[in-house]
């Protein structure tokens, strides 16, 4: 059996203690985020896994079946830490401080044999460096997941469908309209059309910073889907510069009802529903009659 595997097995307790001390000594470790016992349990599991993996003799390729459990544990820890809001440093320190712990024990054991010590130290460092790459990989993946989820949430809350009048929905779109967002806008809008039995939807794009051909395509898709359901779409909030780009890009919106402001779109919607809006002369208020 090779020396490192042996060391990991025979000196497990010592390594674990030293490793735990290294981790806890690290001023940055957030004990508000993880308990000592939890940390000890994970660390214990990892050393055992590493002992089993290294006993195969393979010390450099961690993408083999014998390393699967180790990689698995490391990935889990990194993903969990990413989700819990640990910094990359805190996450990376986990496996890097094990390097230090094993090195210390190696040094004690082979202080009389500098050649062996040198060789084993190099092997250990290489192996643990490889494993730390796994940590960073999965850490980043974990953060990406968090970002994706947050994007979804933002998309969800930033596309409200408002019932402005019986049979008339309004949907103010704020921010860029990419394909994921369009999907959510469409789903929300169509669901609401079914729920409320509305036959007119106003898509207000005053809050959309720029309309390029892709955004226009997304708008056209939304309008088409609304029509298929049996409702009409009006696009409002078309600013001068948007009108210009639309024409310059050669985008055809001639089949779509467009209005400059939400107010005029609403007026159109009212007339389509045969609702009349007029002022009452004795008051400043106005009344809506059907």
């Amino acid at each position: 059996m090779n020396k490192i595997a042996q060391l990991l097995q025979n000196n497990k307790k010592q390594i674990l203690e030293s490793w735990m001390q290294n981790q806890l000594a690290d001023a940055s470790l957030r004990d508000d985020l993880i308990s000592n016992e939890e940390l000890r349990r994970q660390s214990d599991e990892l050393i055992s896994g590493l002992a089993r993996a290294t006993s195969s003799g393979n010390m450099d390729n961690i993408y083999t079946p014998e390393y699967e459990p180790v990689v698995e544990i490391l990935s889990d820890i990194s993903i969990t830490r990413a989700r819990q809001g640990f910094s990359p440093r805190e996450t990376g320190m986990y496996v890097l401080s094990l390097k230090q712990a094993i090195s210390t024990v190696l040094e004690e054991k082979y202080s009389e044999q500098p050649e062996v010590l040198y060789k084993e130290l190099i092997t250990t460092h290489k192996l643990l460096d490889n494993l730390s790459m796994v940590t960073f990989d999965t850490f980043i993946k974990g953060r990406e997941e968090v970002i994706l989820r947050q994007t979804d949430e933002i998309n969800e809350i930033s596309t409200p469908v408002i019932r402005v009048w019986e049979g008339i929905l309004a949907l103010p779109i704020i921010g860029t309209l990419d394909s994921a967002r369009t999907q959510i806008v469409m789903e929300n809008l169509l669901e609401e059309i079914v729920n409320t039995g509305s036959s007119i939807a106003i898509l207000d794009i005053s809050g959309v910073p720029a309309v390029d051909s892709l955004v226009a395509q997304h708008l056209i898709k939304t309008v088409s889907a609304t029509r298929l359901m049996g409702a009409e779409c009006i696009i409002s909030g078309i600013r001068a510069e948007i009108a210009q780009t639309i024409v310059h890009l050669g985008i055809d919106l001639s089949n779509i009802k467009t209005k400059a402001s939400l107010a005029s779109a609403l007026q159109l919607a009212f007339s389509m529903r045969s609702v009349e809006v007029r002022k009452i002369n004795k008051n400043t208020g106005f009344s809506l009659t059907r």
Partner: peptide, 9 residues
């Protein structure tokens, strides 16, 4: 590169 090799991918 590494991403491709890890089990998760």
């Amino acid at each position: 590169m590494i991403l491709k090799k890890t089990r998760r991918s």
